[in-house]
């Protein structure tokens, strides 16, 4: 199967105070139809920017290099009408904060049926019948009443389900989920993820899922990409990521999580602060915080090394360190 989404050598710069600042650095990945891919990283690591670039939602003045191909067509070649069709039919997006992403003065029903009525040319009555069905799909069974309500009358979890319903309404081929559960409490989060995962599989949609929760990515995605300072540091099957990380940063993230089976005093933290893409040093962006860093790591931006059958890692020492990353870190980190 050929890839539905191909991102190749994506570099994005945004204008900040008159100068261009790097936000994405050589991001490349592919996503096949029907698969779920997780994007994991700290705040400012470029997760949202990647997704926004795919949806062509960049602020004015942004400078983009590289290619994003959707079903073979370069997304940056799309002009007005084609872009509108791409956004309305092929991709849809779920946002982190459903409350600020809905128009407060429009009813839920208007919100749900709008895309259908203007893009699918569905008559109003038919659209609202379908919308009620969609609400039932996401577990809202009093849809008829909800359709007449305003966003402020719904709880966050409920509103996020409405967002999910709206985003799958047109049966897109790709769903961009930008931290869809971050604004929700943990129990609601599980419900919403369940619904999203089920719809994704049932409708055979591809999903790009952004989160900073490694567990969540592992639970809902086939593969996971780890981003650091605007660049991909690792790509691997989600279920292997915990047991056999390829990149020291991923390993450090895995170790920084609490483990329910063991009692620990202090969790090992990664020394230093996360860097943004524009202030990252030459060479490997993670080198200043990496306990495996060598001189050569600081000299040139390392390439993304593909490891056949497993994934990819942007670490010069990948082969050498493999299997040893998770060992012995705890004591060393705690003493720092």
């Amino acid at each position: 199967m050929s890839a539905l989404l191909e991102v190749e050598g994506l570099n994005v710069h945004l204008p900040v105070d008159g100068s261009l600042r790097r936000v994405l650095h050589d991001v490349s990945f592919t996503l096949e139809a029907g698969k779920a891919l997780g994007l994991v990283g700290e705040s400012g690591s470029g997760k949202s920017m990647t997704v926004r670039t795919i949806a062509r939602l960049l602020p004015q003045g942004a400078k983009v290099d590289g290619h994003i191909r959707f079903d073979g067509t370069d997304v940056f070649d799309l002009r007005s009408e084609a872009l509108r069709r791409y956004r309305s039919g092929d991709v849809s997006m779920i946002f982190q904060d459903p409350r600020s992403h809905t128009n407060p003065v429009r009813r839920i029903g208007d919100f749900l049926t709008e895309a259908m009525r203007i893009n699918g040319k569905v008559p109003a009555r038919e659209a609202s019948r379908r919308a009620i069905d969609l609400l039932a799909e996401v577990g809202i069974h009093d849809g008829e009443r909800r359709m007449r309500q305003y966003p402020h009358e719904l709880s966050g979890g409920l509103l996020q389900r409405v967002m999910i319903a709206a985003s799958v309404a047109v049966r897109p081929r790709l769903i961009l989920a930008d931290e869809p559960t971050t604004a929700l409490d943990v129990t609601t989060q599980a419900e919403v993820m369940g619904i999203l995962g089920r719809l994704q599989r049932e409708y055979g949609m591809a999903m790009l899922f952004i989160t900073h929760d490694l567990e969540l990515a592992a639970a809902s995605c086939d593969e996971t990409i780890v981003l650091y300072a605007g660049g991909i540091v690792e790509r691997q099957q989600s279920k292997r990521l915990h047991d056999d990380p390829l990149h020291p940063y991923t390993a450090a993230l895995v170790q920084a999580r609490p483990d329910i089976d063991h009692t620990t005093g202090r969790l090992p933290a990664i020394p230093g602060n996360p860097t943004s893409a524009y202030e990252a040093p030459d060479g490997c962006a993670f080198a200043p915080r990496c306990r495996f860093a060598q001189d050569r790591c600081r000299q040139a931006f390392p390439p993304l090394l593909t490891i056949d059958g497993i994934g990819a890692s942007r670490c010069l020492r990948t082969d050498e360190l493999r299997g040893t990353l998770l060992a012995g870190a705890t004591t060393e980190e705690v003493t720092q």
Binding site: R85, S88, H101, T102, N103, P104, I118, N119, A166
Partner: peptide
């Protein structure tokens, strides 16, 4: 500049709409 406008754009709603 509010997020809901971005959400509408990504739904493919026309600017005039």
């Amino acid at each position: 500049s509010l997020p809901y406008v971005a959400a509408l754009r990504v739904q493919g709603v026309r600017g005039s709409m």
